[in-house]
């Protein structure tokens, strides 16, 4: 398992992608309802473009603002302030590196339920980490930790679901905030711990997972 072989071979993503496609097609064929294959594929493709185009406005707005913040030195400042915590979570990123500032911005936006702001910050963070990663096609340790935090992230105000509950005539639309925070805390702790253990495990083994 040398470094040189990492571009070759079948990635995990290939297996998962094929699994979704082939099992779906298989089930449709057995059920004799092949039309759902075409329908599902076209619906998915359309939705993908819709999602990506829907991102353009928010991405342009936030990355425009971020460029000003970066040139004014605000991202550096944020990275410096949060250094003690971030150095522990992301030992592979040099302290004070702008990537840390972007990560903090992404996580804060997530916590506050500002989804449209979180994505551009996250993308920027990934770009910075990919530069540190030497533009390899394999995820770096820092990226894995970042995504572990991101996908399990606490949302203090789940605004959308509160709106749905209110519309459905709930007498206490915000009562779910308590259990939500408690459950997310557990999920996030497990994610961060698993990431830490896996990182150590694969580092010791020296090999590459996939």
């Amino acid at each position: 398992m040398g470094e040189s072989g990492e571009q070759e071979g079948v990635t995990k993503m290939n297996v998962i992608w094929l699994f979704f496609l082939l099992s779906g097609m298989g089930v449709a064929m057995v059920r004799g309802d092949v039309g759902t294959i075409t329908q599902g594929a076209l619906k998915g493709a359309e939705l993908a473009v819709e999602v990506a185009l829907g991102l353009i406005g928010a991405m342009a707005l936030w990355l425009g603002m971020m460029r000003i913040a970066q040139e004014a030195g605000l991202i550096h400042l944020l990275a410096r302030i949060t250094r003690p915590l971030m150095v522990r979570l992301f030992p592979s990123i040099p302290p004070g590196h702008p990537a840390l500032g972007q990560i903090i911005l992404n996580l804060s936006a997530n916590v506050l339920g500002l989804g449209s702001a979180a994505t551009p910050f996250g993308m920027k963070a990934m770009k910075e980490m990919q530069a540190l990663n030497g533009n390899r096609s394999e995820a770096s340790e820092a990226m894995c930790t970042f995504l572990a935090l991101n996908t399990s992230c606490i949302t203090l105000v789940p605004a959308t679901i509160i709106a749905v509950r209110l519309a459905a005539g709930s007498t206490a639309p915000t009562e779910i905030v308590g259990p939500t925070i408690a459950a997310t805390t557990v999920g996030m702790s497990v994610a961060v711990t698993a990431d830490w253990l896996l990182r150590r495990y694969f580092r010791r083994r020296g090999g590459r997972v996939c």
């Binding site: 990919q130 894995c144 991101n150 996908t151 997310t184 999920g187 994610a191 590459r208």
Partner: peptide
């Protein structure tokens, strides 16, 4: 999240991050 974040920087090997993400989902 994994598709768009890794897609944005052209990373194709996700290593253990998919496992961590799904573990967090089940736990949550």
């Amino acid at each position: 999240v994994l598709t768009i974040y890794f897609g944005a920087v052209g990373v194709q090997r996700y290593r253990y991050s998919l496992f961590t993400g799904l573990l967090a989902d089940v736990t949550s």
